[in-house]
Amino acid sequence: MITDVVSAVLMLAGALSCLLGALGLVRLPSLLSRLQAATKPQTLGLFLVLAGTALRVDLKSAATLLLVGLFQVITAPVISQIVGRSVHRSGGVRPEVLVVDELAEERPQDRPS
C-alpha cells in the first residue's frame, strides 16, 4: 500500500517534470534555451518515473532501469553540447535573447550575417 502510494507520487512527479519540459520546448524563444528544457526537466522526470517503476518491479528488472538512467546521464550532456556548439558556429543564435555573448565577442565570424 505504502509502496503503491510512493510509487504513484514519484511517477506523477516525473510525468509533471516531463510535461514542464515539453512546455518549455513550445514556449522558450531560442534553440539554446529550448535545449535546456529538452534535457534538464526530462532527465529529472525520467529519473522519477524510473524510481517509481523500480519500486513496483522485481530487483532483476530494477537493475536494467538503473542502466537506463545511467545512459541518460552519460548521453544527454554530450548531445546538448554538440548541438549547442553547432548552432553557435553556424550563426543560429538569436542575440536579442542573450544578455551577453562572450563567445561571439571572441569569435566574431560566428555572428549571423
Binding site: 544578455v99 551577453v100 555573448d101
Partner: peptide
C-alpha cells in the same frame, strides 16, 4: 538536478518566450 529542473520549469512558466540567456 532537482534545483535545475525546478529552475528551468520556472523560467518556462514565468518568462516563456521572453526568457533570456547568457554565454559567458
Amino acid at each position: 538536478l532537482l534545483v535545475s529542473g525546478a529552475e528551468v520549469s520556472w523560467q518556462v512558466l514565468r518568462h516563456g518566450p521572453r526568457a533570456c540567456g547568457a554565454i559567458i
